[in-house]
Amino acid sequence: MGVILVTSRSFSDGDLDLLARAQIAGHRILRGPAHHELQEMRPLLHGADAWIAGTGPVTAEHLAAAPRLKVIARYGVGTEAVDLEAAAQRGIPVTNTPGANADAVADHAVGLMLAALRFIPDGDRRVRDGDWGVRRGRELGAATVGIVGFGRIGQGVARRLGGFGSRVLAADPFLPEEAVRAAGAEPVTLDDLFTRADVITLHAPGGQRLVDAARLATMRPGTVLVNTARPDLVDETALAHALRDGILAAYAADTLDGDTAASASPLLADDLADRVTVTPHLGAQTTQAVDNMGRMALDNAIAVLAGNPPVHPVTR
């Protein structure tokens, strides 16, 4: 019997019984902490044959503590927290779950657009304070929406916007123009997108700064910015200034720099509460997405433990 260490909080927390699925395949699930703190992880890693890893770091030190480890199955898409070089040196394949949460995140991105354009969170707060004064919003169908990053999630957003009647622009350096058009968007450069869009939604990989003071200065006054991707894509201090100056009408995000430790973020200032909406990583938190991520991660682990190639390998 193989031991599959799981450090994702939501694994098997949907409709699928993944614990039973692992048992049928001849393996036992062992739970570990999502933060991956090394001292706490050492005894768990020592006996692990596979690791279904959450968002915590997977370092060379973690791998050195796991002499039996045969596969790292990321529960999700991003692998920036995994030391891919260290895993390759040890001959440990790394996998992920591409597309598992794409529909959930696309739904959430459109929801944040609507929340920002129609002042929904602010309206709720004001009603609770006895203020029934109205704020005039804008319709999503009347907006030009720019999608930065046109992969599975970005294309899912474009499909949803088609039902609203929005004009859709998309910037993605890795997709040919004909593929962008086939998916329902007008291909544009990143600079062009930022100057033309009324609403901009970020779906690019982390590790880059796409929105800083210089780029904000090129945007149309009153733009709405949505970020369900990564916090490092934006300069939060510059965003706060742009909100106060009226360049940005609203910022709606599913993440902040530092996340749970981000209480000091300039975007959480009291005077910006009517223009900033932040959700706590809700984008992928649907029953369907949790089931998809868990099933795909477990299938990757079971395949490798059975001596077969992984279903969704990650290459460096």
Rank of each mutant, 00 (worst) to 15 (best):
F11V: 01
G14F: 06
D17S: 09
R21D: 11
I24P: 01
A25Q: 03
P33I: 03
H35G: 04
H35W: 02
E40S: 10
D49L: 06
I52W: 02
G54R: 02
G56H: 13
T59P: 14
L69I: 14
G78F: 10
E85M: 06
E85C: 05
E85Y: 04
N101A: 14
A104P: 06
V110I: 06
I120Q: 05
R126N: 12
G130I: 03
W132F: 15
W132K: 11
G133R: 14
G137P: 03
T144N: 02
G151E: 09
L161E: 12
R167E: 14
R167I: 11
V168S: 12
A170P: 02
P173A: 12
E178S: 05
G184D: 10
L190F: 08
L190A: 01
D192C: 01
D192G: 12
F194I: 00
I200K: 01
L210C: 12
T223K: 00
V224L: 01
L225C: 01
P231N: 06
D235P: 02
A240Q: 00
A242D: 02
D245A: 15
A253K: 06
A253D: 09
D254F: 06
D254T: 15
D254G: 07
D259G: 10
T260A: 14
A261H: 04
S263C: 04
L282R: 08
G283M: 02
D291L: 08
G294K: 05
N300F: 11
P310T: 15
